[in-house]
Design a protein around this nucleic acid. Structure first.
Lengths: 110, 110
DNA sequence: AATCTTTATCGTAATATTGCAATATTAAAC
DNA sequence: GTTTAATATTGCAATATTACGATAAAGATT
């Protein structure tokens, strides 16, 4: 096969997995970190920053956009990409929740 | 091609991407959540909990183990899997850092 | 309007992932 | 030692991802 069986899992599980998957590539992590670094959310500079060809970067940007992690505004003939805050808040709260549960558990086996 | 160009990115970027990628599947999120839910970190019940065949679950467990997210102790003829706390602490601190940077930025464009 | 700039899309090759049946492995139980 | 139970591994088919050259699309510039 090769297709993920998303319908057997909860919406929340699928949502977190989708976000994690979108961040599961170093180029996409690099894009996020670049967007965090620059003050103005400039666009096509991303292509110059990354060691990848323009169509490849465009594809990674599309995936981040599909996952809702970034959004793009058309600005003349350029495009201004920036991070969608809500999504990272969601991720942070998810992982904080995991941490809390781990701490409560007092791992007494492994 | 099809192979990720990991050598062009920083170790930290690759490390986060690897963790995110390992969590980028609903079955693996479900495994983590199951391990958080049960008190004793029991093992083969995971197969019964998931809507996937035993070899498939075994493969997902292997990927989580390779990424360092879970670890397994042999316990007789069964195996006790449990979460590696350090990794989630790393993820949480990464996303908290991202959040902090986002808040400092005062998005004035998109 | 012709051209330049910027970004997206198409087409395609290489590789990776997902999923499972069949089989192997390993240790307990008898 | 043979059977049983729990996991892992192998082999394979279907699909997805990664990467890039070529090309298209859309607004800016001349």
């Amino acid at each position: 096969m090769g297709a993920t069986k998303t319908d057997h899992f909860t919406d929340k599980q699928n949502a977190i997995a989708t976000l994690a998957k979108a961040l599961g590539h170093p180029a996409r992590i690099a894009i996020i970190e670049y967007l965090l670094k620059v003050d103005t959310c400039i666009c096509g500079d991303i292509v110059n920053e990354l060691p990848l060809a323009q169509p490849t970067v465009s594809q990674h940007l599309k995936e981040l956009k599909n996952a809702g992690i970034i959004k793009g505004n058309i600005e003349g003939n350029a495009i201004c990409y920036c991070i969608d805050e809500k999504v990272f808040a969601k991720l942070q709260s998810y992982f904080t929740g995991v941490e809390t549960k781990i701490e409560k558990k007092k791992n007494n086996c492994c």
